[in-house]
Amino acid sequence: MSAQAPATLFDQDAVRRAVDAALFDYMSGQIRRAHHRGLPQQALQSVSDFLNSGGKRIRPVLCVAGWQAAGGAGAPNPVLKAAASLEMFHASVLIHDDIIDASDTRRGRPTVHRQAGTEAAILIGDLALVLADDLLHSAGIAPHQLTTVLLVANQLRADTIYGQYLDLSHAGQPPADPGPALAITHYKTAKYTIEGPLLLGAALAGADNTTCSALSAYGIPVGEAFQLRDDLLGVFGNPHDTGKPALDDLREGKATVLMALALQNADPTQHRTLRRHVGNPHLTHEDAEEVRAVLTDTGARAGVEDMIAERRQSALTTLSTAGLPAHITSVLRSQAFNATARTT
């Protein structure tokens, strides 16, 4: 997709390819500059390898969708680079998140800290954050738009870190109250994965308050549903599909709505099973099966499925009355289903 692409067309695969090309060009330039300065290139290469290891590019696609939702045409280079900066920030978040969660694999490959060591991975994640900022600042965004764009980008980053902190503070002994888990879902995923990228793209096009409000009313419920689905996949998903081990969330004792509902509805025996196994770093596959049975038998799994469906419908209702361009409405409808019915 290029600056000349008609505004009435939105090829998500083309956006992904264009963002990948922007990331490749940017990282190639960074590695060349490091070489010319006589600097070691291993950390930059680790970031580049991580970016090339896969990923759905959800955030960049939504950034371009937000741009077109607010009247932008095609996907000019500044928009693509701003969208690519979101993927770079995402890399930083995931590298650090894998350290926090002590995860062994990501996207079917060893995590960065398993390959390079924890200390090196912290620095590699920090480097990706610096590169995300540089990529955004050097995107060629018009000066009169840059201030607004940076406000949106910085809020997105701060919300993500706040959500990560909440997640960490409740790990180990998840509460029976779903409130903390919903707050984590709101900040760590909804604002970061769906709403923030849409608003960043909209800011690039100088969106008015009405458009931004519609994008938020769509983005928050889809983002929450996305995380609720992620929580289900973290326990019930197939590792061959998700690219992550099936025991990590249970061993960590993540505070999820799924677990809160189970704790609320559990009988004494079920409650003891959950408290004995959830948060146990030595949880076995047999133990996990006991936990999964409780999550199903208490109705927690079905309850989360209902919450996903309710949020998806809320987002679709918003789209039906938002007055966004027809091709963007179609894209966002597709994203709502893809984000909430996925298996990876």
Rank of each mutant, 00 (worst) to 15 (best):
Y165W: 09
N154F: 10
A181D: 08
P175I: 04
P143T: 07
A205I: 05
D159H: 13
A181W: 02
L200R: 07
L150P: 03
A153Q: 13
L150S: 09
A207V: 13
A171H: 01
S169Y: 04
P197Y: 07
T193G: 00
P174Q: 10
H186A: 05
G172D: 05
P174H: 07
Q173V: 10
Y187P: 01
A205K: 02
T148N: 13
I161P: 00
A190Y: 01
N209V: 08
A158E: 09
N154H: 15
L199M: 09
N209I: 04
P180F: 07
S169W: 02
Q155K: 14
D159M: 03
G140W: 05
L168C: 12
L215D: 09
H170K: 12
A214Y: 05
G172I: 04
A190E: 07
D159V: 00
T148S: 14
G201K: 06
Q145W: 06
E195Q: 10
A158F: 03
D167W: 02
Y187A: 08
Y165L: 11
E195S: 08
L151P: 00
L151C: 00
R157N: 01
L151D: 12
D167E: 13
L151V: 06
A183G: 01
D159F: 04
T185F: 01
L150M: 15
A214W: 10
A171L: 00
Q155V: 04
H170V: 10
P174T: 10
A181I: 08
A190K: 04
V152I: 13
K188A: 10
D159L: 04
